[in-house]
């Protein structure tokens, strides 16, 4: 049941919720380049206190394709936020103007606070370092579209798994499915204990690896996130390992033919552009599916 619901954390959604969302998104794909006038007269407020291109645009486009309107701001410059208005006050104002609020914020828990203050549903477009639930839904939707199922997949997550906000939400959402997850990262860039304990308690099968070669042949999905140089305590260590977390054609030599490579984008240099031309590359398709997925989400909440 999605109606009038807040979307704050991936933990709040069951397998049935996600399956309903995916079926609806598949239907929405037909309209992702046209218009479905089902939300005429509804207004979405976009409150992006932090910059983001992809997430914000896909929400806006989704709302417009559904026949609704969009108001809002991105970046705090020139807004009352810059003058020191609290998040709570800003949200109260937007709540009065709109039917649904999408928020992105630097602070962990900002979306939860917004949902407490607002009467309209609040959708978390990424808050703090750990939550980006709609991205996780999109990531799993892409797998579901590519394989026709999620159960049974072997999913590798590669890169900085501790500081990438999409990874935490993805793991939490994957806990609804019968998948096997390979966490491939330097030891100190593994997901935080809070996340690991939670997904283990939900029965998610996990293993830790520092070396991709060790598992590449097993994977159906490789989900890549960036490792930033600044995360390394020792710069020499960065130089030593950076190559091993970079996806390049030779890394994929031993991969299954059907392996798909996903990335929340934007990428910097963690995927070699030569991979783009291979049948493994699905990250642009993934980004494109962001519109129908978010159309489905908004539609289910507002209709």
């Amino acid at each position: 049941m999605w109606r009038s619901r807040d979307v704050i954390s991936a933990r709040d959604f069951t397998r049935a919720d996600l399956e309903e969302l995916f079926e609806t998104a598949k239907y929405m794909e037909k309209y992702a380049k046209s218009r479905l006038d089902v939300l005429r007269g509804k207004i979405m407020a976009v409150a992006f206190f932090e910059p983001s291109t992809r997430t914000r645009l896909s929400f806006e486009v989704a709302m417009k394709r559904l026949g609704g309107d969009v108001v809002g701001f991105w970046g705090a410059e020139g807004t009352s936020v810059e003058k020191g208005e609290t998040l709570a006050d800003t949200i109260k104002m937007l709540d009065a103007y709109s039917n649904i609020i999408v928020i992105r914020h630097r602070y962990e828990g900002a979306a939860k606070l917004a949902a407490e203050v607002a009467e309209s549903p609040v959708v978390n477009g990424g808050d703090g370092a750990f939550n980006h639930p709609t991205q996780a839904m999109l990531d799993i939707y892409t797998m579901w579209r590519e394989f026709g199922r999620v159960d049974g997949l072997n999913i590798g997550l590669l890169g900085d798994l501790r500081h990438a906000r999409t990874v935490n939400s993805l793991l939490e959402a994957l806990a609804n499915f019968n998948v096997r997850v390979y966490l491939i990262s330097p030891e100190y860039l593994r997901p935080r204990a809070e996340t690991i304990d939670y997904v283990r308690s939900r029965g998610l099968k996990l293993s830790f690896h520092t070396n991709v070669e060790e598992v590449i042949g097993e994977l159906d999905v490789m989900y890549v996130v960036r490792i930033q140089k600044e995360r390394f305590i020792d710069p020499l260590e960065y130089e030593k390992v950076k190559g091993s977390y970079r996806v390049a054609p030779d890394m994929l030599r031993n991969a299954k033919k059907s392996l798909i490579v996903l990335h929340p984008l934007p990428r910097v240099d963690e995927i070699d552009p030569r991979v783009d031309a291979t049948p493994h590359a699905k990250y642009f398709k993934q980004a494109a599916l962001g519109v129908p997925l978010r159309m489905a989400l908004i539609y289910l909440i507002l209709s």
């Binding site: 609290t86 630097r106 602070y107 828990g109 900002a110």
Partner: peptide, 11 residues
């Protein structure tokens, strides 16, 4: 960076 530590937020 927890929202409960953000200045002046009513939380």
């Amino acid at each position: 960076t927890c929202v409960t530590n953000a200045p002046r937020e009513p939380v």
